[in-house]
Design a protein around this nucleic acid. Structure first.
Lengths: 199, 199
DNA sequence: GTTGGCATTGAGTGATTACTAACAAGAGCG
DNA sequence: CGCTCTTGTTAGTAATCACTCAATGCCAAC
């Protein structure tokens, strides 16, 4: 009970002040929060939501990144880079085709990452985001060709299957089983295909 | 020069009043405008933009549809229904597989339609939109199986290729040729594949 | 221990937004 | 003409948003 601050905070009398952190640490933390928030609401999500997710004040979010748009672009770029890096690493394993497929499945298990990516696919409103999105897609194709030595058609099918997985995760198909016959059949078929690929 | 209204409007003295229209006609017109506007900005687009696109006042847009959300849902449902109807018709032609492929290509030539659909894939925020989106996807799969008698894998590849086309159109890949090597190769490969399918 | 810099906040500000309320204008009809 | 229903508007309102400003507390170096 040395200082009064601790006791007072425990009782809730003083306004909660965030624990002090280095600027870089805080930026990383905000980026992580922004990924979650932007994944949910896209660019329409507010800086206030990001701030609450990071447990700091809203003006500080804006200050550290300059503007909401800058924060979005940086968040998006980080996510896209992550995808490319993971695919790139998988492309150099023993069985690149299998490794890349598995790597992508693991990536999109992070629903936030995937939905954020999808938002970028449509957010062609912003030039920079569109560029990053196109690059990410192009790299997926290029890395598959380069890694596996597969022909264009096989690589195209790899990417296409990835886009199908994206959409199924985005619409939360698994959580809505039994609501639509066609969708159920599609999910089942995709599920079997992924299991087969992993065998 | 019969009435003063016409002359005055030409000179711009009287406030522009929209030509009178039946409620149903107006609703259709607003839905068409909303499709364009929501395609661009998703649910974040404003009712004011829709109103301007339809050349009427913003409150009237809200009044005719109850709320922005209701307008969005109805716009989305109409678009999804259109897709299902077109695919359904194609599934009953002589060569269903070829017809459905061609039909889908023609559908997504309407970039507004496609981008609106994509927005719904992510807008799982709204339950109803999510349901419609899942149904539309499920029907594409189901209709292909039913129409062509194809196996699950072939049908899955049909839908997957469709999703790839969606994304390529959404990120405006064609308009950005030459900016990214991987993307260029992917677009070229997809282009060849569609030409092959149409032969 | 004082000073200077960094992290962080509260309190605005002006712009925008969905939505409401009230009213205007014309068409059809007796 | 008068009455009513529908179409459409203008003028709000309360809420929300990104962003700004001035201040405050804290740490470290002198």
């Amino acid at each position: 009970m040395s200082s009064s601050t601790v006791a007072a905070e425990a009782v809730g009398k003083e306004p909660a002040r965030a624990v002090r952190m280095s600027g870089d640490e805080r930026r990383e933390q905000i980026l992580a929060a922004a990924r979650r928030v932007f994944a949910e609401g896209g660019f329409a999500a507010t800086t206030d939501e990001v701030a609450r997710a990071a447990a700091i004040s809203q003006p500080y979010v804006v200050r550290l990144f300059g503007s909401k748009r800058d924060l979005f672009v940086e968040t998006y770029r980080q996510a896209a880079d992550e995808v490319v890096a993971v695919l790139s690493a998988a492309a150099q394993e023993d069985d690149p085709a299998e490794a890349m497929g598995r790597a992508y499945l693991e990536l999109i298990e992070d629903r936030d990452l995937l939905r954020l990516l999808m938002h970028g696919f449509i957010a062609s409103a912003d030039d920079e985001v569109g560029r990053v999105a196109r690059h990410c897609l192009g790299e997926a194709y290029r890395l598959f060709v380069a890694g596996t030595g597969a022909g264009p058609d096989e690589a195209r099918q790899f990417v296409a299957f990835g886009m199908l997985l994206n959409v199924l995760v985005a619409v939360d198909a698994e959580a809505h089983r039994g609501e639509d016959g066609g969708m159920d059949a599609l999910v089942e078929c995709v599920f079997l295909a992924t299991r087969r690929a992993q065998a």
